[in-house]
Amino acid sequence: MRDITLGQYINGDSVIHRLDPRVRLILTLAYIVILFMFNTLLQMVLALVMILLAYALVKIPVKMLLKSLKPIIPIILFTSVLNMFFIKGDVVFSFWKIAVTKQGLYYAAMMSLRVICLLAGSSLLTYTSTPIQLTSALESLFKPLSKLGLPVNDLAMMMTIALRFIPTLLEETDKIMAAQKSRGANLDTGNFIQRAKALTPILIPLFVSAFRRADELALAMECRCYNGGEGRTRLNALKIRRLDYIAVAVFTVCCVLLFMAGRLAV
């Protein structure tokens, strides 16, 4: 099922699941930033170990991680090849006109590890957070900007409604497609222009329905006293707990250790 409401979320009760989503989001961002600050292979290996430990905490099988890495293998190969062939230095071996250097191999390994860590880190965030949690985290983090006139609450409400209606509209698309196929619409053959044209009988009803839904939803929200984001309170207000402080502390210690490892390597 294409269940966008939950995204890639894996239901669980691990330490990482229990963190405040804001903390999860900030730590992920911090992790990504340090990946780009590190420039030794040792640091990258340690960063990988760090994220693998986090995966172990959530009990996500490595198989799943590997599966999500699959689409980026070409990118890894491409950057590796570029690095291997074009960085000058001590030649390890060469064939035809191309020389593979020691430095080239070193950078290729480092870059590949960086891309892998990047993906593993951001996936961990989406594995452990529902889109709705991410929305509230962003809403809360951007709250100061509402003083500058950015309608943070309204944007978050729009995001929530979008998430709420994506599955409904996908289902609706299936129904409309079935109805038009029953009337002989040919959606599978023909050249690009023919196919684009064949979409009209799907898209028009879909838009009409989306507008009707929007209209009715606006009415229903008005009936439930919605009056913009101002003055709204929340049922599940985000709250920083002791666990969150501990997580930040552990993460910071790890980062410091990694920095020091970098010094040692030089």
């Binding site: 709705i132 709420r164 939803l217 229903a220 439930r224 006293c225 049922l235």
Partner: peptide, 22 residues
């Protein structure tokens, strides 16, 4: 379908009280 706002049942039921600022 067109009057449910949130993606979780309890959050939807909370919608009106949230608007009332409780």
């Amino acid at each position: 379908d067109n009057q449910i706002v949130a993606t979780i049942v309890e959050e939807d039921i909370a919608f009106a009280p949230e608007n009332l600022g409780l």
